[in-house]
Each structure stands twice: as C-alpha cells, then as structure tokens.
Design a binder for these strands. Structure first.
Lengths: 173, 173
DNA sequence: TTACATGCAAATCTTTTGCAATGAG
DNA sequence: CTCATTGCAAAAGATTTGCATGTAA
C-alpha cells in the first residue's frame, strides 16, 4: 500500500499492529530531551541500537507492537534482537514516554505518550482501523465520576468498538 | 477478611484478580437459560465439571482470571484442570455470557456480561481496588463521537486509573 | 576502566491443543 | 452407542532473563 500525501491525520491505517504509513514529520525534541533526562537519572546510556530502535519507533509513530518494530527495524537493515526491542520499549515505558496497551489480541501495543495530547480510540472490529479522538466533555465527566468515588485520577483508557462505514471495510478482523 | 452484610454494591474488593467477598445472592436464572439455549444451539453438553466451574465463576462474580477460578475451584475441593477452566471460560465467552478484559497485567480477566447493565471501571493503581460505575452522559457522548466518525458502536471499554483515598490504601500494586 | 547494553538461547508465563480415556444423552 | 468433555502433557506465543561479549563514558 502506498500513501502519497502526508497531510491527513489518521488514514492509511488498515490493521492493528502493522506498520502504518508515515504522517507528517513531527518534532520530537521534547521526546529526546525527556529521554536524556531519564537516562541520566537512572544511570543508563545511549547506544547505537537503542537510538535506532527508538527512531524506528518514532517513525512508525502509532500503535506499535514489539514484533512490528522488530520487523520494521530489520527491513531497514538494522540488527536488532527481539530482546533488545523489548528492553527498549520497557525502558521507554519506565521513562513514561510510551504507554502500553492490550487490545486483547494477545500482543501488547505501545504508543507514544505525548505530554500534551491524550487521545482515546475508535476501533473497527471488522477491518481493524483505529481512529484517535479526544472529547473534553467526556474527560470532564470522568473527573466528576472519580471525585464522586473519592479517587484522584491519574490516567484513563477509553476504547470504542464498532463497525465503520468505509466502503473498503469488508474483511475480517 | 469478612464481609458480614450483603447489601452494599462494590466494597470488599481489595485486589484485582483475587476472590472477592460475595455480594448479595443474585438470581442467575437468566444466565442458565441463556447457557442452555447456547449449548443446545451448538450441540454441546452439560457436564459435572462444566457446571461446577460455572457455579464457582458466578460465586466469585467479578473480575476473575483463569487462575483465580482454578484456585477457588480447588479450594472448594473440585478437581478441575486448568485446560478445562480455560475451555469453560471460552465457552461462556462464545455464548456471549462473559466479557474478557485485559488490564495489561498479562493475564486476562473475565466478567459476567449482564444483559441489562454495562459498567465501566475505576481502578486504584496503588491497592488495586476496582469500583464499577455507569454514567449515561458519558455513554451518550460516546455515541456522538462514533456517529461523527461514521461508526456504528457495538461496545466500549472505559477504565479510569487513579489513587483512591481509603485509609487502608497504602500498599503497592 | 567500569558498568551498562547486546545477542543469543534458555526460561517463564499464559493460553491452547492433541490424545486417550471418560461420561452425557 | 455416539460424540462431547476431561485431564494431562506437550505445544504455542509473547515476553523476560542469564551469560558471555561488546561498547559508551
């Protein structure tokens, strides 16, 4: 599949866990700064593999499984063992830079945890298309619910499952 | 821990995946009827183990992992292989009587899918306490979001994570 | 020079499956 | 009787870990 324009936001996503088309090139300095800070704090180091795995992860820039990343890295000619992929993803998780999610497909997917934008998911159960959305009214109601039960909210996870109406959507999950 | 009154709704839950205190005795005839219908439709049978595993599941009546159920069944003096536990839970899932959820702890938890009531979760990340809630305003907004993206909603999953304010809550996850 | 990082293989952990024996209808 | 169910052990799939070796600071 080819994606010729890089202006749209959440198209060209056809299957959970596969490498998506790249969107527009984003600025990740905030990411690398936070990473540096974390590595220093934890007495850890940069390394060739670690850096390149992370770059590949940022390339894919969406719901990425360890296997996706491994495949993609290899396709790009990198030598990256599965163990290192996992170790790197766990490092990013520890650094608070990615979130790990289970879409109950067995394998976990990791996504970039942007400091500013949180998003929820609309997932088509037929074709696997994932659309991200954000709804401040829902967020506000969540805070209300949490307060009502005496809980201080740290984060949340909202996934809406359904069937999308794209003409393309015919296949199986 | 003892729970002496059976009138409250979601207390006495201390840790994800452990047997909770029983709430008030509920009427599960709707469940058994639906199960019977499914077994007949699928040319399957009742059996001693299957029935007792299901009864234990209904006893626990909350977010139950296969291991929880296995342990509980053994404690009650039943002979139930892990494989049968899984097979039974998958059967209930196929019958549409339970939902499977992944709280990203590695192991899946199963919960009763009551035909009427859907609930979301408030989860304390420190002590693991789970509270169920329902908020019709949130549900309505979800429908709006789905419509906006051209999707027909079938179900959803909303988990709010935070720290609860119970005096008891001190431990680690 | 001193940890930390890597790759491989082996180990874990959860869940599924093959197979011979048992049991339900 | 026939076909589904069970238990065990083995298999499978995802993730982690031990260890010898390589490498950043």
């Amino acid at each position: 599949m080819q994606c010729l324009t890089y202006t749209t936001v959440a198209v060209c996503t056809t299957k959970i866990g596969l490498p998506w088309m790249k969107k527009k090139k984003l600025d990740y300095t905030w990411f690398w700064e936070q990473l540096d800070a974390y590595l220093e704090r934890a007495n850890l180091k940069h390394s060739k593999q670690r850096n390149s795995i992370i770059e590949y992860f940022l390339d894919l820039d969406d719901h990425v499984s360890a296997e996706d990343l491994h495949t993609y890295a290899k396709d790009q000619g990198a030598t990256a063992g599965m163990a290192t992929i996992y170790r790197t993803l766990n490092l990013l998780k520890d650094a608070g830079l990615v979130d790990q999610k289970q879409f109950s497909d067995g394998k976990a997917v990791f996504e970039l945890n942007r400091p500013d934008s949180h998003h929820d998911h609309l997932i088509c159960t037929v074709c696997g298309k994932v659309v991200e959305f954000e709804n401040s009214q829902i967020e506000r109601l969540q805070e209300e619910v949490a307060k009502k039960y005496g809980m201080r909210l740290t984060h949340h996870s909202l996934d809406l499952f359904g069937v999308c109406e794209r003409p393309k959507c015919k296949g199986r999950k």
